[in-house]
Design a protein around this nucleic acid. Structure first.
Lengths: 135, 135
DNA sequence: CAGCATCCCTCCGGATACTG
DNA sequence: CAGTATCCGGAGGGATGCTG
C-alpha cells in the first residue's frame, strides 16, 4: 500500500470513528463537516470571505434566504468559531459579521470544492439527464 | 481589486446565480454542491475512493447507515455521475460500486475539506465549548 | 445478496408577526 | 437595524418486513 492509499484509509477510519456508537457527535470529522454542509453555510462563508458584512447587507446579498435562517446560520457559524460577530452601539444598532482566522482557513478548503463545482457542474447535469432519460 | 479578490467575487456571483428566481436548481454550483452535502455522501465517496465495494461490504463498513439510506445515497451519487454501478449476474447476484473519473475528480476536491476537518476539529470543538459556556 | 415498499417521525427551513 | 417568537408543511431519514 503506497502512501496515498494509506492516507485515504486513515482518513476513512477517522471519518468512520464513532460509527459504532451510532452517535454522529462521536466522530469529529463528520461532526465538523456537517456544520458547513448546511444549506446556507457555504454561501455565507463565501460572502464573508470577500469582506465583512452587516446583517442587512447579507439579506440583500442573498435575497432568497429567510431572515430566520440567516440569523440561525450565522449563529451556528459563530458557534463553530468561523465567524466573528461585532456589535456597534450606534442608534439604531449595527452588527458586523466577519470571518475569523479559523473561518478563513476553513474557507480555503471549502473553496476548493466550490471551485470544482463551478468548473464541473456541466458534467454533473449531463450525467443526471442521462440517468433520468434511461429511466 | 487584485486577482484573488476578483476570483472570490466571481465565485460568489456564480454561487448566487439563480437566487433571484428563488429556485435552487437555477444555480449550478449550489445545486451540484448540495448533491455531496448529504449526510452520507461524503462518507461513501471516501470509502469508494479507496477501492470498489459491494453493497453488503458498504453496509458492514458503515454500520450506522440504514439500508434504505445506503441504497438511496448510492443512487443519487450514481445519478450525478460520481459512482458506477455494475451488476454481476452470479447466483445470488452481486453488485459492485466504484468511483467514475468524475467521482475521483470530485473526491480530490472534497478530500481537501475532509483533511481540513481532520486537522482542525479540535479548534472547532473548543470554539463550540466556549460559545456554549458563554451562554 | 441486493435491494424495494411501507410506516412513521423528527426537524429543517419558510412565512408571518412582533420588539429593543 | 437587527433581531425573537410562533406556527407549520414537507423533505430527510430510521425501523421493519418482503422479494428476485
Amino acid at each position: 500500500m503506497d502512501a496515498r492509499v494509506s492516507d485515504l484509509r486513515t482518513k476513512l477510519e477517522i471519518y468512520r470513528a464513532g460509527s459504532n456508537g451510532g452517535n454522529l457527535a462521536n466522530c469529529p470529522v463528520r461532526d465538523v463537516v456537517q456544520g458547513v454542509f448546511g444549506r446556507w453555510s457555504a454561501l455565507l462563508v463565501s460572502a464573508l470571505a470577500e469582506r465583512p458584512y452587516r446583517f442587512g447587507e447579507l439579506r440583500r446579498l442573498v435575497p432568497d434566504i429567510s431572515q430566520r435562517m440567516l440569523t440561525q446560520t450565522l449563529r451556528d457559524l459563530q458557534r463553530d468559531g468561523y465567524v466573528h460577530r461585532e456589535v456597534f452601539p450606534t442608534k439604531p444598532p449595527s452588527v458586523e459579521y466577519s470571518l475569523t482566522d479559523l473561518g478563513r482557513s476553513m474557507h480555503g478548503a471549502l473553496n476548493v470544492l466550490l471551485q470544482w463545482a463551478g468548473h464541473n457542474h456541466g458534467d454533473v447535469r449531463r450525467a443526471r439527464a442521462r440517468f433520468d432519460a434511461a429511466g
